[in-house]
């Protein structure tokens, strides 16, 4: 039997992501990836798109940054392209114009936040108001070009292998096997962790059983439910997961909840476009030369 397996990053791809090679620190890359995925998520909600398409888009988005640097393409453009592509893959295509309008609003809102986040003035004075773009204006055509290019680049750089396996079915199976479906809070917590994990690179790094095990581990620990965890009978071994991998996935997820400084926020917001990334990199240069 030869079923096509979904691709995962190779060790070389993990050790040297193109963005890090271009001088973006690992922490910052992870934050930018997470922000790009949040944009996809919000766009999905505004478009009333199915969650499977949104999740697929986020996974394609995460894969993309193992073959491309954020200096070359912006996380906004690629997120938009990923959502457009994933909607076709999941047989629920969306209109280009709808997607472009939604992304435009999200990006303008980010720009607005960036403008007023650093200043001392209170936010209420500068309420964000979205003014729709003109129907035949150049903004639309620029965004449309960016969208078409992004979709094609995702396909090309991933070798057209856009096979994505989502974790939800596996979660339900595993919870049944562990007898954890009695309580409603366990499945919903674990489900939530799986969704949050979409903002991290784990779906491009680990097989689904490992990620599902991590979500179950976090959910049961949070709720104080003990599972057999001593050698010879470790529950995650049932699912062919390695403890180190489960732990690493959990680490990626927990990292999302860490407090960020306003400066960190502003830095991410300023780097949504490749232009922003490039100017940030320019600003870093003198600092590197000093010592």
């Amino acid at each position: 039997m030869s079923t096509a397996l979904y691709p995962l990053a190779s060790l070389v791809q993990i050790e040297k992501t193109p963005s890090r090679e271009d001088g973006i620190p690992e922490e910052l890359e992870l934050d930018l990836r997470a922000h790009g995925c949040k944009l996809i998520h919000e766009a999905g909600i505004l478009l009333k798109q199915k969650q499977v398409a949104v999740a697929t888009a986020q996974i394609l988005f995460q894969r993309f940054w193992y073959v491309t640097s954020m200096k070359q393409f912006g996380i906004g453009d690629i997120g938009m392209g990923a959502l457009y592509l994933a909607s076709k893959l999941e047989e629920c295509p969306i209109r280009m114009r709808d997607l472009i309008n939604v992304y435009d609003e999200l990006l303008r809102r980010d720009a607005h936040r960036l403008k007023y986040s650093t200043g001392p003035s209170s936010s209420s004075a500068h309420e964000f108001k979205y003014i729709p773009m003109s129907y035949f204006g150049s903004t639309f055509y620029d965004l449309k070009d960016a969208l078409v290019v992004a979709e094609m680049q995702i396909l090309k750089r991933l070798g057209f292998n856009v096979n994505v396996v989502l974790p939800y079915g596996t979660l339900v199976n595993y919870l049944r096997l562990l007898g954890l479906t009695e309580r409603e809070d366990v499945p919903s917590k674990a489900w939530g962790y799986l969704n949050d994990a979409l903002q991290t690179p784990v779906y491009a790094l680990y097989a689904v059983p490992t990620i599902v095990s991590a979500a179950i581990m976090l959910a049961t620990r949070q709720l104080g439910i003990a599972l057999p965890s001593s050698p010879e009978s470790c529950w995650w071994e049932l699912f062919d997961a390695d403890w180190e991998d489960v732990w690493s996935v959990a680490g990626y997820i927990m990292r999302l909840y860490r407090e960020r400084t306003p400066e960190d926020h502003a830095r991410v917001l300023s780097m949504v476009t490749k232009k922003g990334v490039r100017s940030w990199l320019e600003d870093q240069k003198p600092a590197v030369l000093l010592p």
Binding site: L5, Y6, P7, L8, A9, S10, V12, Q13, R63, Y66, V67, L155, K156, R157, L158, G159, F160, N161, A204, Y206, A207
Partner: peptide, 10 residues
């Protein structure tokens, strides 16, 4: 894990 292909550009 090793049986999964890496990301390979066209």
């Amino acid at each position: 894990r090793t049986e999964h292909p890496p990301f390979m550009p066209s």
